[in-house]
Design a protein around this nucleic acid. Structure first.
Lengths: 138, 138
DNA sequence: TATCTATATGCACATACAGGCATGTATTAT
DNA sequence: ATAATACATGCCTGTATGTGCATATAGATA
């Protein structure tokens, strides 16, 4: 059974600063686990979970569980979503969106084989872990 | 001074059934007076006025007064708006949006030289006036 | 088994906002 | 000058929703 989404529902989902910041992250990396989003945006985990649920309910995201981890991903399979995300890519250019992308890029350095392997990481720990990682590479 | 529009503000403006129906009308006819919108959607004038104000405040519409009449028009001059409206054209395809367009087309028959020359018109009157108009054309 | 850990959710509170009604304002018509 | 018309706006009310806090759930680990 196909779930019909009302346009209003989609726009309601996008009508929130935090949710736009979340969507912005997915434009950079189309699959993210919850803790990566929490660390990149520095917003409480329970808020992120709720916002992800709204975005999923609007048909913009879907998710998949792997153990305790939950990977959310954008539904670019739907043609209209593709157009919408393409628009958002041009639209979300404010400073904060770019800062979020930079924070995410740092966080993604901790991935192994393209998968998140750590949980929530504080700002300070993140820097330490990135340095260690750099040491391993050398 | 250029007014900066926050993305959230735009999506909030679009996150309402009535406002989406209004925008839909402008995708068909890019300049409309308030009474034409009221008649096409059959929604109280004070509601339409408020919604138009929200859309204008979000940078999607602008308006121009001609006597007591107020003509609102979509701001397609802004590149991002153009993309957004193009998306909406593909997105607003539900039955109600099509019905609204049909109602608007009927109402636009009453225009003279491309301008609205009547005020609020009831359903019944509209039909009568359209018939008269058809008579004139013959 | 017991304990972390990653994520989700229920509840309380405050705020935002759409709808309804009445009324205000400004322009036109008589 | 008065009335009618086109549109805007202020106030009230109910509902929806974002935030914060606490807690639940479920999988991983020791």
């Amino acid at each position: 059974m196909i779930k019909l989404i009302k346009p209003t529902k989609v726009f309601k989902a996008l009508a929130d600063d935090t949710r736009l910041r979340i969507v912005n992250l997915f434009l950079k990396e189309r699959s993210l686990c919850v803790c990566e989003i929490v660390d990149a945006l520095r917003i409480p985990q329970y808020q992120i979970s709720k916002h992800l649920s709204v975005l999923r309910n609007a048909g913009l995201l879907d998710f998949e569980k792997r153990g305790t981890w939950a990977y959310y991903f954008i539904k670019i399979d739907e043609p209209l979503n593709r157009i919408l995300f393409s628009f958002l890519g041009k639209y979300l250019k404010n400073e904060i969106f770019q800062q979020d992308i930079m924070a995410l890029e740092n966080r993604l350095i901790l991935r192994e084989n393209g998968k998140c392997i750590v949980g929530l990481v504080s700002q300070g720990e993140l820097l330490k872990m990135i340095k260690e990682k750099a040491g391993q590479v050398l």
